[in-house]
Design a protein around this nucleic acid. Structure first.
Length: 171
DNA sequence: GCCTCGATTGACT
DNA sequence: GTCAATCGAGGCA
């Protein structure tokens, strides 16, 4: 199992979101496989908080690729990774993971952050500090895609990606 | 300071 | 299917 390079995130958010599936999210001793992601773009994306202009999320999305972005909505936290080609403000939201060496409910964006122990202080950290993403050669899987979930405004594109048939994918 | 809203979840009809 | 809990950030004064 090897660590993903920061260059991995230096690409289009849509590509990164797809490639992130099957990767291992590591926080301390906890490991979980990423099974569901969504891509978010800059001001052109009506579903993204970045479209509202200058705010916490937007500023972080413009930081260097591979940064961790933690966003709070209602009483839950979302885990995102900044990823973009130069100059863009894109990010990938981790919507669901599969616990590998611990138990807990992780079939939703707010649940996985609670189970993994993602905190506000992770906001702005680089991957590889407290939280990291590792590659592994897992069995093959089929990638499913659909419109994003839970957003009130959305683009027509399919920007949600998930591992087909995985039971930890959110509803 | 005060008001509104949301990349959610869980409980309930 | 509907709906309320609950809180940080943004807009406005």
């Amino acid at each position: 199992m090897k660590k993903t390079s920061l260059r991995f995130f230096d690409r289009n958010a849509e590509i990164v979101a797809k490639d992130l599936l099957g990767k291992i999210l590591v926080h301390g001793a906890k490991k979980a496989r990423i099974v569901e992601t969504e891509a978010y773009f800059d001001a052109k994306d009506p579903a993204s908080r970045a479209s509202k202009g200058d705010n916490k999320v937007h500023r972080m999305m413009k930081e260097s690729p591979g940064k961790i972005l933690v966003y709070n909505v209602h009483m839950h936290k979302m885990l995102n990774f900044v990823c973009h080609k130069k100059g863009k403000a894109n990010a990938v939201l981790i919507r669901a993971v599969e616990p590998l060496n611990f138990s807990g409910r992780t079939n939703g964006p707010g649940l996985l952050t609670a189970s993994l122990g993602v905190k506000d202080r992770h906001h702005g950290q680089n991957l590889g500090e407290e939280i990291g993403v590792w590659q592994d050669n897992f069995e093959k899987f089929r990638i499913g895609k659909s419109n994003r979930i839970g957003v009130t405004k959305d683009l027509k594109k399919h920007l949600r990606f998930f591992i087909k048939g995985n039971k930890f994918v959110s509803r």
